[in-house]
């Protein structure tokens, strides 16, 4: 076992983990944050996407020990003071989700995208989401959601009240 200290959504956790524990299993099983999903075993679907020190990563392909000392943000940590992140609001507004399983990863990946490209074109959005698979939406409304969120954020909106 190895002891790790990880900050998840701003809260510090100290846990003993088997070195083989994947970050996604640490999040889901050790600290009970089940919003991050596992959709594949070949690092492709992106359902497990979280932010590791601010960058989007596939938490199924990161060992929990690699996150020792790091800051992790999951879908559960996106709201601020009870207000939805613009991407969360936009995914609902644009019907960018159906079964909801890929959604947390899709949103986290989009957060990463907009953090370094605040005004992506449709093509850039589609390209940036190549590591996140959705089987329900055909991506049409996901792309729209990211565009809406980009506009909201450009207009200075940081968060949207949940209704």
């Amino acid at each position: 076992m190895a002891e790790i200290n990880v900050s998840v959504n701003g809260r510090a956790y100290t846990r003993d983990v088997e070195p083989r524990t994947l970050l996604v299993h640490f999040l889901r099983d050790a600290i009970g944050l089940t919003g991050t999903h596992v959709g594949c075993d070949t690092s492709q679907c992106g359902a497990c996407t979280v932010l590791l020190d601010g960058r989007g990563v596939k938490s199924c392909t990161v060992l929990a020990v690699q996150a020792n000392g790091a800051q992790v943000t999951t879908i559960e940590g996106l709201e601020t003071n009870g207000a939805l992140h613009p991407l969360q609001a936009a995914f609902r507004e644009a019907h960018g989700l159906q079964c909801g399983f890929c959604t947390p990863g899709m949103i986290m990946s989009s957060v990463d995208l907009l953090s370094h490209n605040p005004h992506p074109t449709e093509g850039e959005i589609r390209h940036a989401l190549e590591g996140n698979l959705c089987r329900c939406t055909g991506y049409h409304n996901i792309v729209k959601a990211v565009q809406i969120a980009a506009n909201t954020m450009a207009a200075g909106g940081s968060a949207v009240a949940a209704d």
Binding site: S43, G46, T49, L52, R55, G56, V57, K58, T61, V62, S109, D112, L113, A128, E130, G131, N132
Partner: peptide, 9 residues
């Protein structure tokens, strides 16, 4: 390489 998430790690 891969996708943006893979390139981040």
């Amino acid at each position: 390489i891969g996708d943006p998430l893979i390139r981040n790690m």
